[in-house]
């Protein structure tokens, strides 16, 4: 159900849409009963905002993302995009997954073209695909097959495919989770470039606190619900500062990181109250060891550590 404001044939980027999640619950039917995953989820997302859903494995963040685009249906409650409810897979959304999920038998440009809205004029479509490949830095690789390019390139193609839909809402399910550390950091910057060029609403799922802090306007932490089995929104945090944010040390963000990590049940080993110190930084680093990367380890933290 495209809203009046969402052009379905034009290849120009669509307007960013607001998303409203209303009292959404989702439980999965299992052989021996049901598994409640989400309950009482209420969230309003501004048009053009980047919201990161953060949570531990199995916290239902991917499930929530799927409710937004209609790939999965809430057991109760509903999702509104631009004021109209999501019924079935919504053409105003585009999704990219943790794996590129490209069709092996198509070239990268053909894969990107798969994302074009139905009924796109052939020439306009080709121009749009070329433009998107350029945007994600794959202009010279349009003719390659997915197997012939690296994982990062494939993921960039998958991102371009999502953008080809000119989505009002761009949904990203751990889009950089399978990439190596440095590629991941570059992809985060690429996402911000894309968002600057085509500012759709972005909902991104991750369990990487630093990624969330770097990308998000707001971070939604999913946590166990106090009122029954299943997860719900534990807290919503606004990330201070303008993007692109300093990848090096920022005391305000460091404090938020500590809070988020503790919200995820990871001890931050943060000891004192007189502001984060270099030692604290290292402690935080140690506590996020499940990430095999850390762009900050080789950067000086001293000069910025005083607040």
């Amino acid at each position: 159900m495209p809203s009046p404001s969402a052009p379905t044939t034009s290849v120009a980027s669509a307007a960013a849409h607001p998303v409203a999640i209303r009292d959404v619950a989702r439980e999965f039917a299992l052989a021996g009963g049901s598994l409640p995953v989400l309950r009482d989820v209420d969230l309003d997302i501004e048009p053009g905002e980047i919201v990161v859903l953060l949570g531990t494995s199995g916290s239902g963040k991917s499930t929530l993302l799927r409710q937004v685009c209609g790939l999965d249906v809430p057991s109760s409650g509903h999702v509104l995009i631009d004021g109209t409810p999501v019924r079935g897979v919504d053409p105003r959304c585009a999704v990219a997954f943790q794996e590129p999920r490209l069709l092996a038998w198509r070239s990268l440009s053909q894969n990107v073209a798969l994302g074009l809205p139905r009924g796109t004029d052939k020439q306009d479509g080709a121009a749009r695909v070329a433009e998107l490949l350029e945007l994600v830095g794959l202009a010279e690789f349009g003719g390659h097959r997915p197997k012939q390019v690296s994982g990062g390139m494939a993921q960039r193609a998958a991102l371009a495919r999502a953008l080809a839909r000119s989505p009002g809402v761009l949904l990203l399910d751990e889009p950089f989770g399978a990439l190596d550390a440095l590629t991941r950091l570059r992809m985060q910057d690429l996402l911000l470039d894309i968002h600057a060029a085509e500012p759709s609403t972005v909902v991104l799922v991750t369990h990487d606190v630093d990624e969330a802090l770097y990308l998000a306007d707001r971070i939604v932490l999913l946590a166990a619900s106090p009122s029954g089995p299943g997860n719900t929104i534990g807290s919503v945090r606004t990330v201070p500062g303008q993007r692109p944010r300093d990848r090096a040390f920022d005391p305000q963000i460091a404090r938020l990181r500590i809070e988020l990590l503790e919200g995820l049940g990871v001890p931050s080993h943060h000891e004192d109250d007189h502001g984060p110190t270099t030692t604290t930084r290292n402690d935080v680093h140690r506590s996020t060891r499940h990430r095999n990367d850390d762009d900050r380890t080789d950067r000086p933290v001293g000069p910025r550590s005083s607040s």
Partner: peptide, 27 residues
């Protein structure tokens, strides 16, 4: 299943899903 989900996410169902995703994948 992941490819089928991609197909659905990009608005393919029925014969389009069959023709674009499933047939080539089983070729």
């Amino acid at each position: 299943r992941d490819l089928i989900e991609v197909g659905r996410a990009y608005g393919f169902h029925g014969h389009r899903l069959l023709g674009r995703i499933m047939m080539p994948a089983t070729m």
